[in-house]
Amino acid sequence: MADTARRGALAGRRPSGALLGVVPFFVYVTVFLIVPTLVVVVGAFIATGPGGQGALSLANIRALAQPAVTSALWHSLILSAVTAVAGAVIGALLAYAVSTAKPDGVLRRFTTSLCGVLAQFGGVALAFAFLATFGATGYLTNVLASTGLDDTGGLWLYEWNKGLMLVYLYFQIPLMLIVFLPAVEGLRPQWREAAETLGGSTWLYWRKVAAPILFPSFVGALLLLFTNAFSAYATAAALVSQGSPLLPLAIGGTLNSEVILGQENVGKAMALLMVVVVAAVMTLYAAIDRRASRWLAR
């Protein structure tokens, strides 16, 4: 009886304590996610031009059909898809190679730690590292030019479909390794042995068992890489100085441009477009991840 009363009292007390603990998180999410999202959503439907200042309008949404915006969206999608697929394939192979190393071995610990750092090494610092190496005055460019092996002057680095793809892969591959390694490690030795005792070869095990089991995790990780590239801004901004070939740069342009003024809400409409794309991809990711985690749960 006393026990029940105590449990009741505790049960009553626990949620409020737990809630108190997560208040800072909710404040953070409200200030830095919910409020900005609302500003974007509302702003996308508010006119800024002469005559319609402050009125509800679809003009900003209609502006998304402008060639500059559709082209930026297309480039962003291509860049994200290519670096996500390439990063996922290379990262998955690396993850498998790492999974075969001794679990507490130096190679494995070193590789996973390094990837943890590299996956977060983006932005201006990464752009600078590439500029210093492959840029117009980069030391490798100079070395190659002096030996006559390359006379392009490192200009390819500044193009979204060449240099930027390479730079993005620099953080996409390590990110894939970190995200995909737990899935590879989740493959149980019993599955391989069961397949073998039932008459299957190693190839057959990979084709009929391991690959189908890993597929949802692979697709999930690929989607994560896609959104990672799609929403990246700082690296692209530091490398690409001519025009706004990508959607995040185009949004930046509407806010920073000293030539075209009053386009902030068109920028918000573009941001809304990004939110829609990312939300769709992440919804798909969540659905796939649910299935993968059910199969690979330990």
Binding site: W191, E193, A194, A195, E196, G199, G200, P212, I213, L296
Partner: peptide, 20 residues
């Protein structure tokens, strides 16, 4: 002779069913 040619059925301790 390799495992896949021995014609043996095996039941493991646990978790050996193919989850997919």
């Amino acid at each position: 002779v390799s495992t896949n040619k021995r014609d043996m059925g095996m039941v493991f301790q646990a978790y050996s069913l193919f989850p997919h």
